[in-house]
Amino acid sequence: MTGAATTLLLPGWQNSDATHWQSRWEAVHGDHRVEQHDWMRPKRGDWSACLEEAVLAAPGPVVLVAHSLGCILVAAWAAHSRHTTKVRAAFLVAPGDLERDDLRQMIPGWAPIVRQPLPFPALMVAANDDPYCDAARARGMAADWGARFVDRGPGGHLNGESGLGDWPEGRALLNDFLNDNED
């Protein structure tokens, strides 16, 4: 796949606020947020349709940069889309465990989590103290999806509350991963 890739940001439930690294990357790097119709009551089919539209609208290849529910979206979308060949790579950060009872009740319709291998290279970064996903569950998702796994150590949900700012460490991980997966 040649040409510059469009970076598509896939926030999780309730979107990414101004202090979130995804919002900072949008401002600093010009990445493109995939807007959802309803950030508060996410429906898997609606979110997948919005991702499909964004992938098709991109002029060339795309890089998916997902956080939390966005990671679960990538797996669900990839299982059904006929356009996964446009994806150069996926950067998956802090997946939420939507099979956990409390989260499944707050965000219904997303369990079971699609656990088939992704048809494109993927890198997952997760903290070992994420309140929304046990470290072993995150590792299991990464393994099932065929994603390389990076243990970030402590950091919570790796969101705005984690104090990552522009998260240069994350951007470096993404860039190194993309360089390692050049065609």
Results as ranks from 00 to 15, higher is better:
98 L>Y: 12
149 F>D: 07
21 W>I: 03
81 S>A: 08
6 T>A: 03
59 P>F: 01
56 L>N: 12
147 A>I: 10
55 V>I: 05
71 C>H: 03
140 G>F: 09
100 R>L: 14
142 A>K: 08
69 L>F: 01
136 A>W: 13
129 D>P: 03
122 A>I: 05
73 L>M: 08
25 W>E: 04
116 Q>K: 14
123 L>H: 06
39 W>E: 13
139 R>S: 14
102 D>H: 13
6 T>C: 00
57 A>Y: 06
32 H>W: 08
26 E>D: 01
73 L>G: 03
3 G>P: 09
28 V>D: 14
116 Q>F: 10
48 S>H: 08
25 W>Q: 03
7 T>S: 10
33 R>V: 04
146 G>T: 05
154 P>V: 12
176 D>F: 14
142 A>Q: 07
100 R>G: 11
129 D>Q: 06
14 Q>C: 06
162 S>R: 07
85 T>P: 00
138 A>C: 07
4 A>T: 14
135 A>Y: 13
58 A>S: 05
94 A>S: 08
1 M>F: 09
104 R>A: 12
128 N>P: 07
137 R>E: 12
179 N>S: 13
128 N>M: 13
20 H>K: 09
1 M>A: 11
121 P>N: 02
181 N>K: 12
88 R>N: 05
150 V>R: 15
68 S>Y: 02
84 T>M: 08
3 G>W: 01
100 R>Y: 13
37 H>A: 15
46 D>K: 12
51 L>W: 00
93 V>F: 03
154 P>W: 15
38 D>T: 09
72 I>Y: 08
163 G>S: 00
71 C>R: 06
166 D>Q: 14
135 A>K: 14
3 G>Y: 05
34 V>N: 02
139 R>C: 05
33 R>Q: 08
26 E>L: 01
95 P>Y: 02
92 L>N: 05
142 A>T: 13
81 S>I: 06
121 P>I: 00
118 L>Q: 05
44 R>L: 13
107 I>L: 07
165 G>N: 02
20 H>Y: 02
161 E>V: 06
133 C>T: 01
105 Q>D: 14
9 L>P: 05
136 A>R: 15
9 L>Q: 04
74 V>C: 09
65 V>S: 14
138 A>K: 02
91 F>I: 10
177 F>C: 08
139 R>P: 04
17 D>S: 11
64 L>C: 01
26 E>Y: 03
135 A>E: 14
122 A>R: 08
126 A>T: 06
65 V>K: 12
97 D>R: 12
12 G>Q: 02
27 A>I: 00
115 R>N: 10
177 F>G: 09
114 V>G: 00
77 W>T: 09
11 P>S: 10
20 H>G: 02
141 M>D: 07
14 Q>A: 07
120 F>D: 01
123 L>F: 08
109 G>R: 05
23 S>L: 04
93 V>N: 11
66 A>N: 10
169 E>I: 15
180 D>V: 12
153 G>H: 11
126 A>V: 04
68 S>P: 09
146 G>C: 09
50 C>E: 14
